[in-house]
Nucleic acid binder design. Structure first.
Length: 757
DNA sequence: GAATGGTGTAGGTGA
DNA sequence: TACACCATTC
């Protein structure tokens, strides 16, 4: 279809935004109002109608996922792949700039990206050096990151009047120095440094100003002060800036995002064209009405009201659960009914406030053998063994990388302990040299005693020969050699804690990922490009085949997604809104926006639930329905009672609160819980996403043993568990059992003496 | 120097 | 509950 026809199919405000002439536009795009559609059509329109060259266009998003989706959808709109266009995340684009202009930015050519884990390790070392015992690395990291998000360096930190600020500022200074010395750049630094590039190198800035005549920004409400400054510096008087966002969906204030940027934008750029997209194409009228009513309780809004010409649909169901197990049981029963009616599992989503809540649902789904997928949590490149392997590669690429050096010098254990390391650190600090350099000098100087000298010599030898062997080799071979020669693989293959097997598989998967890696940055050597890729895209790659799974995720990660049926669970005071937000009006409003995001994810069916008693950190506590439930008009809600009781519209309830009956509940089962999500092995296939151990179709009961997958069993030594796999026949039958406290084990059925629990 | 047991603590998330 | 961290023992 021609672009003209495509544009005709847009609604009037969408069309107005897409074809807006002039310099700047701000699109207030409500949930489900076709935000990405507008962005991608705008780009196509710039290319085809305004005759913009693709290389004049820069489109910025926050997540890799959003960037990938945008690329894909642009590809569907324009006939030729738009070469030279920059579409990426703020960090990805800043990284690209710094690689291209490393010298101007004052970096070394081989600089490496320091992720948050590396960052905390480094800070921990600095705290030790400083002898501080009160601050936690995470606190310090948060401080440093917050300063960088505001565009401040250590020398800018105002220490007046704050006693602990002086310490924090000193740590920031030392942190800066350590990063400088090791050629390391953290996430905030990518942006900060590229912004300084604009300020300090006007010639360079003007070059990019001339080049990027069109800048488009997605999720503008989530920009922080630094990102906003970066944009303002890059946008010259002739740049057209097209920002899309929704202040009602601003949920990252705690991370430095400033919704105010949306209001500022109107003031700071002259003649901003403001377009409101208020027609919702996603949800039923009832769901929208509920969401509108909820968000109307916020005072700080630009103002916008979603409407839809779809029918009102069914009422929102409200379930008051006895406890979190009952809540999970209820949700899983609803999902069973949903799938039994022929609907796909993947169109049902369970959304919660915090990751810990996934557990009860995972257990209930596992028992009923329903396939599910948990988003979030640890990703591929975040796993310890993967990070170890990458650290070897980093050390090969950049000998000055002290963070990598510290990570692998004794991993796998090779007899180099804290004392030896302290010596190396001390020397490094005194001389200002990287630890690798200190090590080689120390070895040459011969001032080391027997055992330590041997261990250190062995390590130095290993890195040197790896560096030589990797020279000019394909990436896959480099990864292979690093994993093999370092002894990492062998180390994990010993499998001391039952999780070694999975780690070896992960390492193999890393080799696989290396073999599949395509280096798209032509000016970058393959290894550096791969390491940057690993840091910037922690493994949530696109392309996962997508088995039909129930979707479990936090409300934060649900932003931008939609599902036909949504379960918004754990809607309780103290949990949602979270305890730590209740006393602060601004934070409470952010929680409410998060709830708004949750409600507006649902297309057809929405179910809200809370528990009257919940176990948190091993302690059972009473709970109350969230104020957010009361803020949804009663006429949109129907309270669902337990099986055998009659559903009653909420409008007939006595005004005021909700009835809190202690109606019986499905007998609360034993307190058994399976190991956390990492226990299984079926979740390790492709790096991108983790899939539960239940992705295989459930196996039929084993006729010989009378045991089946999913059965709860008891073992004399390991306690209670659930069978996750069966293999073999008769006396040779082996069963895999996931124990509550002992991880997952394969057992010979004959020997194990399992009894049904 | 490495392995093991006891204690304290706990948000959401992206790059 | 579950994990990280520290202290203790081998």
């Amino acid at each position: 279809m021609s672009l003209e026809r495509q544009i005709e199919r847009l609604n009037p405000p969408q069309r107005e935004a897409v074809t807006a002439p002039g310099q700047t536009a701000l699109v207030l795009a409500g949930a489900g109002s076709g935000k990405t559609r507008v962005l991608t059509h705008r780009i196509a329109w710039l290319i085809e109608v305004e005759r913009a060259a693709p290389l004049e266009i820069l489109a910025v998003t926050f997540t890799n996922k959003a960037a990938a989706e945008m690329r894909e959808r642009i590809g569907q709109l324009v006939p030729l792949p738009p070469r030279g266009m920059w579409v990426g995340t703020f960090h990805g684009i800043a990284h690209r700039l710094l690689r291209a202009h490393w010298r101007d930015a004052g970096l070394s050519e081989t600089f490496q990206i320091l992720d948050s884990d590396d960052q905390q390790r480094l800070i921990k070392r600095l705290l030790k050096e400083l002898g501080d015992e009160t601050l936690k690395p995470a606190q310090v990291a948060a401080f440093i990151n917050a300063r960088k998000d505001e565009g401040q360096r250590a020398r800018h930190v105002d220490t007046q009047g704050f006693a602990d600020r002086a310490v924090l500022a000193e740590l920031y200074r030392r942190y800066e120095a350590a990063c400088e010395r090791g050629g390391m750049v953290d996430f905030g630094e990518l942006l900060l440094r590229s912004n300084e590039l604009w300020v300090q190198q006007p010639v360079l800035r003007d070059h990019y100003r001339r080049r990027f005549r069109h800048i488009l920004v997605d999720e503008f409400q989530d920009t922080n002060a630094l990102q906003y400054a970066w944009l303002r510096n890059l946008a010259g008087p002739d740049t057209s800036l097209f920002a899309v966002g929704d202040d009602d969906q601003a949920i990252y204030g705690w991370r430095g995002a400033k919704v105010e940027n949306m209001r500022e934008f109107e003031r700071q750029f002259p003649n901003v064209k403001v377009v409101r997209l208020e027609q919702n194409y996603r949800s039923t009228g009832t769901i929208l009405a509920a969401a509108n009513a909820l968000i109307a309780h916020n005072r700080e809004r630009l103002g916008k009201n979603l409407w839809s010409d779809a029918g009102s649909g069914e009422p929102i169901r409200l379930y008051a659960a006895y406890n979190e197990q009952d809540e999970a049981r209820f949700v899983v029963e609803q999902i069973e009914a949903w799938t039994a009616a022929g609907n796909p599992r993947s169109e049902a989503a369970i959304l919660y406030r915090s990751n810990a809540q996934s557990r009860a649902f995972e257990e209930a789904l596992m028992v009923r053998r329903i396939k599910y997928r948990v988003y979030g949590g640890q990703r591929f490149f975040d796993r310890a063994e993967i990070r170890d392997a990458l650290a070897y590669l980093r050390l090969i690429a950049n000998p000055a990388d002290d963070t990598a050096f510290e990570r692998v010098i004794n991993q796998p254990p090779r007899g180099i302990g804290d004392k030896t390391l302290d010596t190396l650190r001390g020397e490094a600090r005194a001389s200002g040299l990287p630890m690798w350099e200190v090590l080689t000098r120390l070895l040459q100087g011969g001032g080391l005693t027997g055992r330590t000298a041997a261990a250190l010599g062995g390590f130095a030898q290993l890195i040197q020969s790896l560096r030589a062997a990797c020279q000019g080799q394909p990436l896959m071979d480099q990864a292979l050699m690093a994993i093999r020669d370092s002894g990492l693989k062998e180390h994990h293959a010993k499998d001391v804690d039952g999780r070694g097997e999975g780690r070896v598989e992960n390492l193999d998967e890393l080799v696989n990922a290396a073999s599949l890696f395509v280096n798209e940055e032509e000016d970058l050597d393959e290894l550096t490009a791969f390491l940057s890729h690993a840091a910037l895209e922690a493994g949530d790659a696109q392309g996962e085949a997508g088995a039909d799974c129930v979707q479990l995720m936090t409300l934060h990660s649900a932003k931008g997604l939609e599902f036909r049926q949504v379960f918004l669970v754990g809607v309780e005071e103290g949990l949602f809104p979270s305890q730590r937000s209740i006393d602060d009006p601004a934070r409470l409003e952010e929680e409410r926006r998060l709830c708004y995001v949750g409600l507006t994810r649902a297309r057809e069916r929405l179910c809200v639930s809370y528990a009257e008693s919940r176990r948190i950190h091993g302690e059972t506590r009473p709970a109350m329905a969230s104020r957010f439930i009361e803020e949804i008009p009663a006429e949109h809600l129907t309270e669902v009672r337990l099986r055998g009781t009659v559903d009653r519209p909420m409008s007939t309830r006595p005004s005021g609160g909700f009835e809190r009956g202690s109606y019986g509940h499905g007998g609360s089962r034993s307190d058994w819980s399976p190991g956390r999500r990492d226990g299984g092995r079926a979740d390790l296939q492709p790096p991108p996403r983790r899939v539960s151990a239940w992705n295989d179709p459930p196996k039929a009961p084993d006729s010989d043993s009378g045991l089946w997958v999913g059965q709860r069993v008891r073992h004399g030594k390991f306690g209670e568990g659930v069978i996750t796999d069966l293999e073999g026949q008769g006396p040779r039958t082996r069963v895999q059992v996931k124990f509550a406290g002992a991880g997952s084990k394969w057992l010979m059925l004959d020997m194990a003496g399992l009894t049904p629990a």
